[in-house]
């Protein structure tokens, strides 16, 4: 600092240069530049992705316009394409996946972070991280050979007899369908929710909990009313990470969902997702409009993800403002 004091006497420009030199010397400017470049590659890659999808989907965008989002035909022979069944399938399976995985994942994370002995907690956390690294095709195979037969012979008939009055559980039980897709996604995203939520819960300062206990709350009250709200932002983060994974999951879903582009009120019915359609049809698509439509599907998936993530951010902001314990 003594140097920069001296520099101020020689005028502003030289002072700035000197200051910059000093920062360079300390490594700040270098670090700033390098991290800026690294950070901007993310933006550049995303930008290029959108640009490519936009350009390559031109034929389809011109031919179908906004109708692409709302029509349900997918006919490569007569070149008539609509994305609605795929959007529907993507949203339904992801929502079902989250619905099943969030309570279980959060419960497991609370147990691991708050109640389990530390040794058990870290051993289990290791196993959970391993689960996250299992390739999706393996989950898909488990889905075909174990989950689908079980759904067809046990779970779906059970749901149909007891809850068959709901349109959700009507129709023939094939095993493959929205339900199978949702369940397989739930299993796949569970490790993300548990792993990240556990880390977040462990990062809550012990003083928070101690303060709650000191004013007479029970162990569970301290967890539920103090620790969880404090960690809320991080937990939402883990859920959105899981959602992103679910929206883009291809292999495991295509193996169990039945690959039929249709909109149905029944979870037993076969469906299709955006990512699965692209993976299935891209290599053999010969028509230019067909290819462009697949590109536009990619663009649609991008838009859907963008909107859902945006909503997620808003949710976090809204709850953070009314929150008590955060920061």
């Amino acid at each position: 600092m003594a140097m920069s004091n001296k520099a101020s006497e020689r005028g502003i420009i030289s002072q700035r240069a000197h200051f910059w030199f000093q920062r360079l010397h300390e490594g700040d400017a270098v670090a700033h530049l390098v991290t800026l470049i690294v950070a901007s590659t993310v933006l550049v890659v995303t930008g290029l992705l959108v640009y490519e999808l936009w350009i390559d989907s031109a034929l389809s965008r011109q031919k179908f316009g906004w109708k692409f989002f709302f029509t349900s035909t997918w006919d490569p022979v007569f070149e008539s394409f609509g994305a609605w069944p795929f959007i529907f399938g993507t949203l339904v399976t992801s929502a079902l996946g989250l619905l099943l995985a969030v309570p279980v994942g959060l419960g497991a994370a609370i147990f691991l972070a708050e109640m389990a002995p530390p040794k058990v907690s870290s051993a289990l956390a290791f196993v959970i991280d391993l689960l996250a690294a299992v390739p999706s095709v393996i989950y898909g195979l488990l889905g075909i050979f174990i989950l689908v037969p079980w759904l067809r012979t046990s779970a779906e008939p059970f749901l149909n007899t007891h809850f068959g009055f709901l349109p959700l559980f009507q129709g023939p039980a094939y095993g493959v369908g929205f339900l199978a897709g949702g369940v397989i996604l739930a299993i796949m995203i569970l490790p993300y929710i548990i792993s990240v939520s556990r880390e977040v819960l462990l990062a809550v300062p012990p003083e928070q909990r101690e303060a709650a206990l000191a004013v007479g709350s029970t162990h569970w009250e301290a967890t539920w009313e103090v620790v969880l709200p404090y960690a809320r932002t991080g937990i939402f983060g883990s859920i959105f990470l899981a959602l992103a994974r679910a929206l883009g999951e291809t292999m495991a879903v295509t193996m169990v969902i039945g690959n039929t582009p249709q909109v149905s009120s029944s979870l037993f019915a076969p469906g299709y997702t955006i990512a699965a359609a692209i993976a299935n049809e891209f290599t053999e698509a010969t028509g230019n409009v067909h290819l462009a439509a697949l590109m536009e599907l990619g663009l649609v998936l991008f838009v859907v993800t963008f909107i859902l993530n945006g909503l997620g951010r808003l949710l976090i902001l809204a709850t953070a403002q009314q929150g008590t314990a955060r920061e």
Binding site: P76, V77, V176, N259, T260, P270, Y272, E281, A285
Partner: peptide, 11 residues
């Protein structure tokens, strides 16, 4: 075609 608009069935 290499993929068509199937009237029935599972893929």
């Amino acid at each position: 075609e290499t993929s068509v608009n199937w009237p029935v069935g599972l893929g």
